[in-house]
Amino acid sequence: MKPFSYERARTPAEAAAAVERRPGAKFIAGGTNLLDLMKLGIEAPPHLVDVNGIGLDRIEPTPEGGLRIGALVRNTDLAADARVRRDHAVLSRALLAGASGQLRNRATTAGNLLQRTRCPYFYDPAQACNKRQPGSGCSAIGGVSRQLAVIGGSTACIATHPSDMAVALRVLDAQVETVQPDGRTRVIPIADFHRLPGNTPQAETALEPGELITAVTLPAPLGGRHVYRKVRDRASYAFALVSVAAVVMPDGRGRVALGGVAHKPWRVEAADAALPQGAKAVMATLLAGASPTPENAFKLPLAERTLAAALQG
């Protein structure tokens, strides 16, 4: 690991200013992804700003009837919150489908959103990767791509976003609240938070340098049946090949998002309208224009079957 200096921030504004002050500096919260990447030399921040002492660790009701989830709320605590389990169960289910008990105890709400891809070429410094080293090329295209994206990719990158939590947040239409180094705050809809790779796969989110996530808000409960169904190579502790987050109303209407298929949680609002017609009708719109590799073309029928299974309950 490359040497780095370290400081503990006391407030969100202080943390944002501290990161902006030092080029290349990063926030550290749970650290479960960042330290892994630092050990491999994929991340090498010269300075870390520890945000574990800045608060933002509560889940509070909003005036609109939803919940404001502090950025530092641990995945375990978010999944176990009685209000989330009762009113936003797809979020609890998604969190519990990800990682291990040890990792969920450390991983935070904001950090989960900011996870880097697990594309094996991103993780291997001997390989070309436009995300790790812009302009170096993409060894994944034409390489081992079984786990990688089937839609929304580019000629520069076919990585997937690894988060389960983010797929549930996308189906719930969550919003991401941030603070800038100059103290300004803004709200980013989850749909606009993660980017598609295009020609700049290294730019993964809408965040600007030094911008700190302070909270994620959920709208008022949607009602309906909440489902998170994840298909993976082993029964536990593995990333998704495909996952489906769905909220389905008694009359069959609802909304759907997919994980494991794209550079961001994949939802197309127009596809939601087809939900009463079943999984095949949804996928005709949701996965229209997909361009899988020969190794991951199986994800298209798998996504349809996973949604069909989820709709059956």
Binding site: Y6, G30, T32, D36, D50, G101, L103, N105, R106
Partner: peptide, 29 residues
């Protein structure tokens, strides 16, 4: 593994289990 994949480093910090390999000592004042 030293990468949070195997759990051999599991310890209990403030009543909760975690992977000791994926957290910095200086973060535990």
């Amino acid at each position: 593994c030293d990468h949070g994949q195997c759990g051999a480093c599991t310890v209990i910090v403030d009543g909760r289990r975690l992977n000791a390999c994926l957290t910095l000592a200086v973060m535990h004042e």
